[in-house]
Design a protein around this nucleic acid. Structure first.
Length: 227
DNA sequence: CCAGACGTTGTT
DNA sequence: GTCTGG
DNA sequence: CCAGACGTTGTT
DNA sequence: GTCTGG
């Protein structure tokens, strides 16, 4: 699955990416980059389509479903199985109207061994920055604060990631990302067909230090190859 | 009609 | 062991 | 995802 | 919010 990732890129590169690939040029706001260790509960850089144009902004990682929006400690869903998003009634409105992508340049998975867990970083050889498919939602919590929350969609691990883990985030290419974000998609069934394991031949993976285990370690050491 | 359920992963 | 928080 | 916390009463 | 079940 995907419970930790990186966007270890400087702000300028991300702004160039947003301009070139998504025609986003209103870029005054600071993007708080680079990030080496992004964890659930934190704000993640996301793209949506507002019906006229692509927009970027921050969403809080941990999707709060409508049915739980008013509880004191709502369920916060960090991943959703892409295979079943069309079957879950509580997701219907998000699937229809609140699809998004989350920007990353790598994600972490842990291999379980008899002696413990070993972290790995997985990247694309094709896209320095890549969009991960997500669904977002809005709610007003019990104190009246508005929150925009997001879950990352998952899919079966590809041939590379399979060595260490059974699931991986849905990574899209730029073309499919735009389709996924399309405000008036041809059909939701067609959109769901975009949610596939990333191609093996475009995937690279390497072991990293267990420094990454603690989200408090927001440091370049997280992405340095182990040994 | 209303009431009740509604996640994921990994591990067992 | 299990939940919470980042 | 992992790390960290994990209680109660009564007093301030 | 939306579907299922009774």
């Amino acid at each position: 699955m995907c419970g930790r990732f990186s966007l270890a890129t400087d702000e300028f590169s991300v702004k160039v990416y947003l301009a070139n690939r998504f025609n986003i040029n209103r870029n005054a706001a600071s993007l708080d980059l680079p990030r080496y260790n992004i964890a659930p509960g934190q704000m993640v850089l996301s793209l949506i389509n507002d019906g006229r144009a692509f927009r970027h902004g921050y969403l809080k990682w941990g999707y709060v479903p409508d049915y739980d929006a008013k509880s004191q400690n709502p369920q916060r869903i960090i991943n959703l199985r892409s295979e079943t998003i069309l079957e879950k009634s509580y997701l219907a409105a998000s699937v229809a109207k609140r699809r998004c992508v989350i920007l990353a340049d790598g994600f972490y998975e842990w291999r379980k061994t008899s002696t413990g867990k070993i972290p790995f970083r997985i990247r694309s050889t094709d896209q320095e920055l890549f969009p991960m498919a997500g669904l977002w939602n809005s709610h007003t919590d019990s104190r009246g604060n508005k929150e925009h929350t997001v879950a990352i969609l998952t899919v079966a691990a590809n041939g590379i990631v399979k060595d260490i883990h059974e699931r991986m985030p849905v990574i899209l290419n730029d073309t499919d990302a735009k389709l996924w974000l399309e405000a008036q998609p041809p059909s939701l069934v067609e959109l769901k067909q975009l949610l596939l394991p990333y191609p093996d031949e475009l995937t690279t993976m390497y072991e990293v230090s267990d420094i990454v285990n603690s989200y408090a370690n927001e440091s370049p050491a997280c992405i340095v190859p182990a040994n």
